Every structure is written in structure tokens, then in C-alpha cells.
Simulated assay, not measured.
Amino acid sequence: MADRPLFVMTDPCCFDVSYRINPWMKPETWTAEQTAAACAASETLRGALEAEGARVETIGAVKGLPDLVFPANAAVVLDRKVLLARFRYPERQGEEAVFRAVFHRLKARGLVDEIHDLPDGLFHEGAGDAIWDRDRQLFWAGFGPRSSRGALPVLRKTFGQEIVPLELASDRFYHLDTCFCPLAGGKVLYYPPAFSPEAQATILSRVAEADRIVASDEEAAAFCVNAVNLGERVVMARPPQSLREKLQAHGYTVVAVDLDPFILSGGAAYCMTLRLDRASAPAASVLAAE
């Protein structure tokens, strides 16, 4: 039981698109029918994760906080340590107290050990902008639209892991998780136009050509890069056939889920989840010379 992946999701019953903080959001077109569709889509995603052997904890919905359904932005979690997010936009800042209470309850249950805060004056939007790469043992860290570059040393100090900064260059791909997805086995699925030239160069220097899977404009706009990877399985919003074939060629199987209501708010499978059980590799033991 304990070795099954553990995720947090949020009850979507209060989800809607009632404000605009990214180009995907169009409050004027939202309908009650879409809220009902969102509830069904969230349940389908939960079922897909559980079918892959994951456990899912549920956060209660809060009226007036529709983007609470995207707990990837709540915090960065590694080695049972939690660095709580601070949101840039006032529309999401009410989520901070909710997520803080959630993590303290998780700590009381023994599911996390430490809870840390960002220093004043810094913004960082959680695992949406700090993605753990298990194969490389580092965090890829997005900054620019939502997260401050100045928060990256805090990540380094909190978790003691290498941080690779990546500047985001598009308001359409405002979190790193919308355009960058490390996969088991060392492959990386990403969308180059979302990054500054310096960030693109960093990716090329860090990821071998054979390990790069480049998403097209269509694939990125379908929020397929915003995916949850569990070994050889990749749970994502319904992809174009082109991306399905790319991933299959690299040995991955796509688990497609209809997440259209959430894409209307600028999020999909990764945004809708936060994994709690990620762990870094233990440091190599060193025997003292006798």
C-alpha cells in the first residue's frame, strides 16, 4: 500500500471560469453544463490514476476559489518536505490558507514531515513551476509569468537539490507544467516556443537529442504536455494521433482522458494533481577510513 503513488486532487463542484488570468480563460462563455462536465472529467481522471495503482486524497471544494482544482500549484513536495506556494494573482491568493490547512492535516496524519514558507516578497506557484526529474535528480524550475526567479534559491535551500532555471516566454504557457514534462527513463516531452532562447539552450545542453520529444503547436494547445507520468504510462488530456505515435515510438502508452472543461481554464492532468510521495535518491554512503 505504502509504495503506491499518492496524489492530491480537489473536489471540482465549485469549479468554473469566472475571471481571466490567462489567455485560455473566457468567463463570458462558461455555462452550468460545463461545470457538470468538469465534475465528470475530474472523476474520470481520478479513475485513470487509480487504475494505474495510485491512491488519491481529496481536498474539499471552496466556493469562490474555482482554481483550487489545480493543486499542483499548492506547493512543491519532495522527501516529505513541503514548500508552500504564494500566488501572484489576487484571484488565487485565497487558496493559500486552504492549502496550508490541508498540508497541516496531512502532516498530522504522517503523510508529510515539514512545511516551509517562502520569504516575503517572492512568488512561487508550486509544482507547476518546479518539476522533479527523478532520472536526473534535479528540479526543472520555471520562472517569469507566475514564479519569481528569486524563489529558486529557496527551492535549493529547502530541498538540497540542483535547480535548473528555465525562463518562460509565453503568457499562453505560464507555468512550466504546461510545456515541459520529464518522463520515466530520461525522456522529456516539451514545447520549445514556450521558452526563452536561453532556456531552450539549457534544455538542449541538459537533454540528449535522442531523449527529446518535441510537442507541436497543436499538441501543446491540447494541453497534452500537462501530463502525469507513471512509469511507461502517460495520463494526459486527449492527444492528437501525432503525439500518441511519438510517445509510442519511445515506449510509452498514452492513457487519454477528456479534460476539456479544465483546459478552458488553462490546466489539465498535471495541474489537477499534486504528487505527495516523490523522493530523491538517497545519498551514497561513505565509510570512514579506519
Rank of each mutant, 00 (worst) to 15 (best):
Y89R: 15
R134V: 03
A36T: 11
G121H: 00
Q93I: 04
R134T: 10
H124M: 14
L106P: 00
E114V: 13
F70Q: 08
R86N: 06
A97L: 09
F99G: 03
L138W: 06
G126F: 02
F99L: 13
F123A: 03
E125C: 07
A74N: 04
F70D: 05
A74G: 06
V77C: 14
F143W: 14
A72W: 02
D135M: 11
A85E: 06
E57L: 15
G94R: 11
N73F: 07
R46P: 00
D120N: 13
L68A: 09
F70G: 02
V76R: 09
G53T: 00
A61I: 08
V98C: 12
D133A: 04
A141D: 02
I115A: 13
A72V: 03
Y89M: 14
R134N: 07
R134W: 07
F70L: 05
R88G: 05
S42P: 00
G110S: 09
G126Q: 02
G53S: 00
D113H: 12
F99M: 13
E43T: 08
H104C: 01
A41E: 01
V77N: 08
A127K: 03
G128S: 10
L83W: 05
R55P: 00
I131S: 10
G64K: 12
F70H: 09
G126W: 04
F87H: 10
W132R: 09
I115L: 15
D67N: 15
P66N: 05
G126T: 00
T44C: 14
A108V: 00
P66K: 07
T58N: 05
F139Q: 01
L83Q: 02
P90W: 09
V56R: 11
A75C: 13
H124W: 09
L84F: 05
F143K: 02
A141E: 04
V77W: 08
K107D: 03
G110A: 10
A75E: 07
I115H: 11
H104P: 01
V82Y: 10
A40V: 13
R136V: 03
A75G: 10
G121F: 01
P66M: 07
G142Y: 08
V76H: 10
D133V: 01
H116F: 15
